[in-house]
Amino acid sequence: MRYAYNIPPMGIFKKAFISGTFLFISGIVIARPISWSGGSTFMYKSNFMYTSYYYHFSPTYKYSVGFEIIDDKHFKDEYINLRSTILLDRKNTKESQRNLYLTGAISTKTEDNFQYGIHGDWETRRIFTSFAYINKHTDTKDFTENEFQLGFAPYVGEYNDLHTWMMFKTKRDTINNDWQTYPFIKFFKGDFLIELGTKDSHWDIHYMIRF
């Protein structure tokens, strides 16, 4: 016996409440900054500017909150950020998913340390693109980070396979004021993801586990 249930498209996410009022409190840029409802994520990220350890919890798939321990190599500083990310918009199709996030953080260091920005991505099983625009404010300097990523999967893996992505990242911050472009490779399998890239002898490492 077989039954079929047609489900109408989901309602449009009412995002009017995410206004400029909240702009200043939301987080930073990392792929998949929100997990499934009730899911947790731990991330480790290290590059020539900083090393960070970030844990976040997603009460819903539209929102995550967490904290990040930062070892700031540029400013020779250590501090903790309280971070939040909001899913502003998501479009699901059979072949793709598109996301737009509002992200931000405040530092436990001083009132003058905070950051905010937007982050978006579009992904199919073959192609991944993303952008980010983050404003960072510190007690000594304010600056902006821009980042774009483009990647493709050399093969399309099935569920539970090892997935591999060949990626290019280009990024700029207004401190160094030059664009840096470099390739990196992304692997993920199950709940684990790792990204590795290098530019001018600096390693860019990103590790993530979801649970």
Binding site: K14, F22, T60, S84, T108, E111
Partner: peptide
């Protein structure tokens, strides 16, 4: 600093209640 943390927690709670209400409405 404490003012920032208090503000952060307040806004998070507001967001959480709003998003959950939104989910219920979608459902």
């Amino acid at each position: 600093m404490y003012k920032n943390i208090f503000l952060f927690m307040t806004v998070q709670l507001s967001l959480l209640s709003h998003v959950q209400a939104n989910d219920m409405q979608d459902h």
